[in-house]
Amino acid sequence: MPRVAGALPLPSGDSPRDDVDLVRAAQIDSTAFVALYERYRDRVYWYLLTRTDTAEDADDLLQLVFLKALDALTHYRVEKGPFPAWLFGIARNTAATFHARRPPTVAWDLVPEILLPVDEHDLEARLLRQEDLSRLRQLFGSLDAPKRELLVLRFVSGLTIAEIAGVIGKSEAATKKQLMRTLHRLKEHYHDYTP
């Protein structure tokens, strides 16, 4: 079933309190971990799609990430940071290990065109969408890998700045500064790409 665009659970939509309850339940009973899997499956998957060359690789890594998270769940401490930061940290490390012998990549060709939510019979809409996609690819491609990852974590995986800080191991202030700097850099180049 196609996912409705805009249905991504953004940071403000998830309650940290719920996360804490779900984590504690899963720490006592591992079968309760599936609720956390259901909550974060898509966001982790979208992130992994940007870190792998094929969807099959992302599928494999997705399973690995959640099994690792389940195994390590007893070591997670709520007071050390939000659960998404911890989980995406595992995803990031897993992807990094996967790419250990390859140069680090953060791809944007993550969605086959056939999956794009476009009415094939509406030629104008299709062309406009392709144009948008082309501009986005150019914008995204002008950045180095760490900055691209930062944008993926914020805009694709929907993490808050505090959660991203936990993933990349920097302070919240430094992370926000880096994100804003990246956005301003894109803004400066934006007019170069805008028709």
Partner: peptide, 30 residues
């Protein structure tokens, strides 16, 4: 404008879904 474009990137990215067979296999593994 930049944030709006990146937000559109999110919309496109979130069209991808975990294949149902793999999803079931992961649940089973968990």
């Amino acid at each position: 404008c930049v944030v709006a474009d990146l937000d559109r990137m999110r919309e496109i990215a979130t069209a991808a879904i975990v294949p149902p067979r793999r999803d079931a296999a992961i649940r089973q593994a968990l």
